[in-house]
Design a protein around this nucleic acid. Structure first.
Lengths: 121, 121
DNA sequence: GTAAAGCGTAACCTACTGGTTACGCGTTAC
DNA sequence: GTAACGCGTAACCAGTAGGTTACGCTTTAC
């Protein structure tokens, strides 16, 4: 997870995906490096759970998954000095998880199909 | 900055330092790796501004600097879905910076002496 | 059916990272 | 003054990360 964010290209991919889903090719267009290189960055992001891929014909659309970010923020929270920030972040994290559950009400709605990933975060 | 957090040893060092300042040797005791290896991790943390060293005789005491954490949290905030979290984090960040200023009221109080670092964050 | 498009994987190479041991420098102890 | 302590740096080495090109598979277009 932290390692996934350490790379500047991956961070930029995350920013791109912030505004909506993009196909692998659309993501690759934004970079000077080769498409396979971008493809591997996307794989790292997938495996750390920051991004989710959905198959649509011969294309793969990538979407942000906000959940793991809350996890990192939760870890960072223990280092903040000002009293109160930690509690507020706890509430915030809870909110993140709740929102996630609400976004996936029934797991059998598989249109489009999610691609399985080991999630080695 | 993000790279500094990516390493598990460095993350554990930060956790150790959370409860107060430690000398380089005390930090090293907690790990199975050699002292020079720990020393280099401490240097990375210093250069990314996450940690500050103060000279005391032949010892070097390390302290957390909470400020850069707020920076990372601020970056992460843009990826959170639930409405409201971003604003609350903005306020939180402000609080971090304010607290930091208050902790260093006069820069000419140099006892103990801070060690300069390029801060290549 | 055949060609092209869209992605991913494999194999390879280089550069960096993180570990080690050897060493040097300043500080404390005696 | 001399020895021991605390810590950092230097030199070296192995493993990993990130880049490239070549290739293969599935889907769309004709």
């Amino acid at each position: 997870m932290a390692g996934a964010i350490a790379d500047p290209v991956r961070r930029e991919i995350l920013v791109l995906l912030r505004d909506g889903r993009l196909s692998a090719g659309e993501v690759a267009e934004h970079f000077a490096i080769s498409r396979p290189a971008v493809s591997r960055h996307l794989r790292v992001l997938r495996q750390s759970g920051l991004v989710r891929a959905e198959l649509a014909g011969r294309q793969r659309f990538y979407t942000l998954d906000p959940e793991p970010f809350g996890e990192l923020v939760g870890w960072l929270a223990q280092f903040a000095r000002p009293a109160g920030w930690e509690h507020r972040l706890d509430a915030l994290e809870t909110e993140v998880y709740r929102t996630r559950r609400e976004r996936r009400p029934s797991p059998d709605v598989k249109a489009p199909q999610d691609i399985g990933e080991e999630n080695t975060a």
